[in-house]
């Protein structure tokens, strides 16, 4: 039999498989820990920090922290939720997000996370950076104004597509997602069928000509808050 580990999240006892991360165990138990960069099929990136939880009193990213016997994990405390809101606020003001005209609206994880956490307007001043768009590719559009540097495209292209189309360049505030060419996506071997074309949580990498296939109002997060799929598991059980 597989080795199991028992621990608690906000007082709920959870039995996890040894070697799982807190995030994986929580997902299976139907407890949603807010996250933006993490995606099931990819290596955890640990960059957005939205999934920060307290593990025996120390802050850790739930997506990279392995479960350990007897640990006490706190997730929905007032302090942590406030920090999560701060982070989401930061991501908004760091880019140029115009949800009302963005074709990702309603399917965007950043927007959905803001709603879930109860953010109506960012409390930080906008930084209005100058960022590039790249429409060179026949089927895919890149708008760096909306990029949250989550690393999903980098990892999907490297690990799943085996292509390495994306990588980060620059550091600090100057950090950007770049393509494996002098400048343009059209000069890479990216194809619309690549996994990397499907993973962006926001509207930074989008497919052309399908943006409004599903009308606004009928999109994923128009219907239910982000995380509902995971929470249903728990509700289904009880």
């Amino acid at each position: 039999m597989e080795k199991t580990v028992k621990f608690t999240i906000d007082g709920v006892e959870i039995t996890a498989k040894a070697g799982q991360t807190i995030m994986q165990a929580a997902d299976e138990a139907g407890i949603y820990i807010p996250r933006l960069c993490y995606m099931n099929e990819l290596k955890p990136h640990g960059s957005c920090r939205v999934c920060t939880v307290m593990v025996n009193g120390n802050p850790q990213a739930a997506c990279t922290q392995p479960v350990a016997e007897g640990t006490v994990v706190k997730s929905e405390t007032e302090k942590i939720q406030a920090s999560r809101r701060d982070i989401v606020d930061m991501l908004f003001v760091e880019g140029n997000h115009f949800c009302m005209v963005c074709e990702k609206s309603g399917n965007c994880e950043l927007q959905a996370m803001a709603y879930r956490l109860g953010i109506c307007a960012p409390k930080y001043p906008y930084l209005f950076p100058k960022l590039d768009v790249d429409g060179s590719h026949p089927d895919i559009f890149i708008d760096r104004n909306r990029c949250i540097l989550c690393g999903r495209c980098v990892e999907a292209s490297q690990d799943i597509d085996g292509k390495g189309v994306f990588e980060f360049v620059g550091r600090g505030q100057e950090k950007r997602v770049a393509v494996n060419a002098e400048a343009k996506l059209a000069d890479t071997n990216m194809e619309v069928t690549d996994k990397a074309a499907d993973v962006c949580p926001v509207g930074a990498i989008i497919k052309k000509r399908v943006g409004f296939a599903v009308p606004v109002g009928e999109r994923l997060y128009d219907k239910e808050p982000i995380g509902s799929d995971i929470e249903r598991k728990k509700n289904g059980k009880t």
């Binding site: 960059s47 957005c48 920090r49 930084l127 540097l149 550091r171 600090g172 505030q173 100057e174 950090k175």
Partner: peptide, 10 residues
């Protein structure tokens, strides 16, 4: 800063 994570970068 390296720019990897949100809180430090922003």
């Amino acid at each position: 800063n390296c720019g990897y994570c949100t809180p430090c970068r922003v």
